[in-house]
Design a protein around this nucleic acid. Structure first.
Lengths: 165, 165
DNA sequence: TATTGTTATACTCTATAACTATA
DNA sequence: TATAGTTATAGAGTATAACAATA
């Protein structure tokens, strides 16, 4: 394979698109049968492991629109994977929590997801895989800082801590 | 390591989605006014720097469908950025080449793209940026190799083993 | 007035199949 | 028959605005 040096610029977008598409394909296959594929899995995953937050907070954290979150939660709730609980402190808001059944399904799918991800990363050595994950997480945190969206795991605490603008 | 182990799994998809979305946003801004945004840029870029290939070869290299390539090339050709030349060896096929004007526009946009990418990668040190690009390119090459087959071979085997086509 | 969640609409992207012209 | 390219259609994804309930 011949690589020209001036290819450096465009290859970032090419690489991101190719890898992201491959991930979505693999993740959708691993989450087949779940309400909204890999997106439903992501929502369920966030609802299960984080402090129960509002729909808007969840949507912001995952980088999807809050109107889309409504549809995703409708499907997940119909499948008894998550619940919308009223927030006693703010009656407009609803807290999203995973049901016991949701946690079971999540644990079962986690193994499949891990295999799919491993297959995607199989071209790298274990230490390279670790490096890639670290760099990607750092980039993602930075990218979320750039946009009005702020969705990093620890950054969410910063938001909710200073939620009085 | 106080992080729950199952969080490692989901963060790959989260990171890829966040970074890819941020790239598309930045790239679309940098290629504003071009026929099909960052996708048109990618096609023009590939047409300008590679050996002129068929539309199908170009589509496979960029990871997009050949029916989509038709629309993209229609727009790019209408803007006089690329040309469809007949392939003398195979009259079914058409070779995609960038016009002189297309190369000018490409050079002009390359600088903007580079700035946009730099902004996206600004959270990493220069050496980390180089590592990320290298790892990503390696991953993308690997993913493209098994994309035509199926990306999640092992995970898919489990599913197809208990389901009828 | 601002915000949370919902709904409706439209626009984009993608996936699929059918068609032609060549091989 | 198979392949390169085109076209048409339907589906999913996304963005936007409007609305009701609450702050």
């Amino acid at each position: 394979m011949t690589v020209t040096p001036d290819r450096l610029t465009g290859d970032l977008g090419w690489g991101l698109a190719v890898v992201f598409r491959a991930y979505v394909k693999a993740a959708d296959a691993a989450t087949e049968g779940m309400p909204s594929g890999h997106r439903g899995y992501q929502v369920l995953c966030a609802a299960a492991r984080d402090e129960p937050g509002s729909q808007a907070a969840l949507a912001q954290r995952l980088g999807i629109d809050r109107t889309v979150m409504t549809y995703l939660l409708d499907d997940l709730e119909a499948a008894n994977l998550v619940e919308r609980q009223p927030d006693l402190a703010d009656r407009r808001s609803r807290r999203v929590v995973a049901t016991a059944h949701g946690r079971e399904v999540l644990a079962e799918r986690d193994a499949r997801l891990a295999r799919a991800e491993q297959h995607l990363l199989a071209g790298l050595t274990p230490s390279e895989q670790a490096s890639f994950r670290t760099l990607l997480a750092s980039l993602a945190a930075h990218a979320n800082d750039l946009d009005p969206v702020l969705t990093a795991c620890e950054a969410v605490e910063d938001i909710t801590a200073s939620s009085a603008p």
